[in-house]
């Protein structure tokens, strides 16, 4: 039999402000990273629908490389690996926050490109033919007809990617970005209240992801109406 249970929730509650200060970095990295990730993803996703072999090839190498390696390795590679090269060649460094944002952008970009490609390719060919037969150029057909329909189909998987990327930011604790998990680890290191603190950390992540799911469902419902 073990000893008596001795949990100290007061310490955990006292550490809440510290944890909450981590949230803003978590959100900042997620939102800014995904913002750029969306543009990377849209460009790469489009590239994956073209017949141009070179453009298609470049995008495919990017997508397969990023999806085929762990995001933790990507973050370490950027922050320690790339930084080492930058240091030696140009005597400059990316800070950990920037590295984290770039890692999310590049990583989510690869997944988003597949979301974009899938959504575009799911639009019926007849839509393009109808647009072209009316005399619209392929660009205008894409802009007025394909993209709006494809974008609507991207929203649920993009929301899902939002949740995944938000959770992925916890990995950046290893490169000492002061995001939520890192703050938790620091508090645990001084208080030893691992169970209490990690319970709180988990609950905060859960709160964040549930909020995203909630907002997402409302958006989807509204889109269904029109």
């Amino acid at each position: 039999m073990g000893g008596s249970l001795n949990l100290n929730w007061e310490i955990a509650i006292a550490s809440l402000p510290t944890l909450l200060s981590g949230i803003k970095w978590t959100i900042l990295i997620t939102v800014v990273g995904l913002f750029f990730g969306f543009f990377i993803g849209a460009a790469m996703g489009l590239a994956r629908t073209t017949k141009n072999k070179l453009v298609f090839g470049i995008a495919t190498v990017y997508v397969e490389t990023i999806r085929g390696t762990p995001i933790l390795v990507q973050a370490l590679y950027l922050y320690f690996g790339v930084n080492q090269v930058l240091q030696q060649m140009f005597a400059l460094q990316i800070n950990s926050l920037t590295a984290a944002i770039i890692a999310i952008a590049i990583n989510s970009g690869a997944y988003i490109s597949e979301i974009v490609r899938g959504a575009i390719q799911s639009i019926d060919k007849g839509q393009v033919e109808a647009g072209r037969s009316l005399g619209l150029s392929s660009l205008k057909t894409f802009y007025y007809i394909v993209w709006p329909q494809a974008f609507k189909r991207m929203i649920p998987p993009l929301g899902n990617q939002f949740i995944i990327s938000l959770k992925d930011t916890s990995l950046f604790a290893v490169i000492a970005v002061g995001e939520l998990l890192r703050q938790g680890q620091l508090v645990v290191a001084t208080t030893f209240a691992a169970f209490e603190i990690y319970t709180f950390v988990s609950l905060i992540y859960l709160m964040l992801t549930l909020s995203i799911s909630f907002v997402l469902r409302r958006i989807e419902r509204r889109l269904d109406v029109s």
């Binding site: 019926d124 007849g126 033919e129 109808a130 007025y144 329909q149 609507k152 029109s226």
Partner: peptide, 13 residues
């Protein structure tokens, strides 16, 4: 040259 398709191909959005 107007074209009318078997599947209509109206723009649903």
């Amino acid at each position: 040259v107007g074209m009318v398709f078997q599947q209509f191909n109206l723009f649903p959005h």
